[in-house]
Design a protein around this nucleic acid. Structure first.
Lengths: 231, 231
DNA sequence: ATTAAATAGTGAATACCATTAACCATGTGT
DNA sequence: ACACATGGTTAATGGTATTCACTATTTAAT
């Protein structure tokens, strides 16, 4: 009957988490906000952990949707624009949703992952898949120069193969390595921007971001697209 | 008289934080562990926030000491080894102290920084200074190829100058940019390793780390040192 | 040496929080 | 009409931070 209370509770939980931080996301506060007593929420969620998990799931879906939309807003043949816009969307979303970023990709992740089942791979697989399809296109166009299998350290190669299988990619591990190298830099920039270590100098992360994108696109044999459509 | 209780409380607080996470670091738990009632700790610390702050300060000192020792354990003239060992020490310490890493460089940082004064710059300045001295050596030896001032986007250039001033560096902003590029990659790898997003494939971060170091040393015109002494 | 004051603790009180258990409506299916 | 599942309630337990009033003890000053 009142499955709408579950929806209400989830949006309230999301709002509270965003405003107060995940540690401020409390069963009591949500109950107050939806006009019900705390124990009532135990019919819908598995206590506080369940609330956090619900927010996690919602946020994951929203994040992936946002990034995928940004990618698909570009010309399908303009891979440079697709990569650039997708990455930019990741940055923009993360800056606009710092608490949620921490939940998805920061310290929140191991905590959520530890409590419940079926978590650990979602973001990595979906996001890796989204960008992986772009790398696959590049690879089939023969634009990509990368290390040959035998030039990669065997232990690293095994890890790259595991990654490739789990995410469902279909190109040489040299290309997988390129992906990981790119992600490492993007992720570093994201964490710098979100956690704000260097905020004293790099309050606005965009200049560094654009410089990095030029770098990464160059690594992939691409140049900045003149037809970039950012939201 | 009993300034030793403050010391006791701090080491207990550090242990609890490391074992249970910062959210498990509670005034009551520390009080129990040092055999005193909770209000007693208010004579020494500013409540729970004060405890966290105390841990933060201790951990900062320990971290910097660990990294500095690793650097100074190398041949003073072998800058490659110094950079490599310092970076490796950062990785090792972070993996061995994940909770503390989050406090210093992750989501914990903005929270601690928001509460009290004089925080935000410590790590950035000291760590930046340590590595900055190595970059300065490289720069004076003329080994470094970097962008000229006028080839850097003006907004980015201004940010780099702010960074240089705050950290107290004395080389062109092109070299500062090199530092930031290196740090971005190291930091990305650290967060990947500590937060464990890609643990399903990259459980052991060392292969990626060593590959990255080769890359970064190459960027600085160096090669892997044959005389690397890791702890 | 006696006395005043600072130090370092306790206990009690307030106000949050999570979680469980027992209970009570209300509407649904038979 | 009756049994029952659904979705809420209140009450109870136990954990947390924090403040306040109080006390013992130590230190310092006259």
């Amino acid at each position: 009957m009142r499955a709408e209370l579950e929806r209400d509770a989830k949006v309230v939980a999301r709002r509270i988490a965003a405003e107060e931080g995940v540690e401020g996301l409390t069963v009591a506060a949500v109950a107050r906000s939806v006009g019900v007593t705390p124990p009532a929420l135990y019919r819908y969620f598995n206590g506080r952990a369940g609330l956090v998990r619900a927010v996690y799931d919602d946020v994951t879906a929203e994040f992936m949707d946002t990034v995928a939309r940004a990618v698909h807003r570009q010309d399908p043949d303009d891979i440079s624009a697709r990569l650039h816009a997708g990455t930019r969307a990741v940055l923009d979303w993360s800056l606009a949703n710092k608490v949620e970023f921490d939940l998805l990709m920061g310290a929140g992740f191991p905590k959520v992952a530890a409590s419940e089942e079926g978590i650990p791979i979602v973001i990595a697989r979906e996001l890796g898949g989204l960008f992986g399809r772009l790398f696959a296109q590049l690879w089939h166009e023969g634009q990509l120069t990368c290390l040959a299998d035998e030039d990669i350290d065997p232990v690293l190669a095994a890890q790259l193969r595991t990654y490739r299988t789990t995410v469902g990619l279909e190109f040489p591990i040299g290309v997988v390595l390129l992906m990981v190298i790119c992600w490492r830099q993007i992720y570093g920039l994201l964490c710098m921007a979100v956690y704000g270590h260097h905020k004293f100098a790099f309050e606005d992360p965009l200049p560094l971001f654009e410089h990095m994108m030029d770098d990464l696109l160059g690594l992939l044999g691409l140049t900045r697209s003149p037809n970039l459509h950012v939201a």
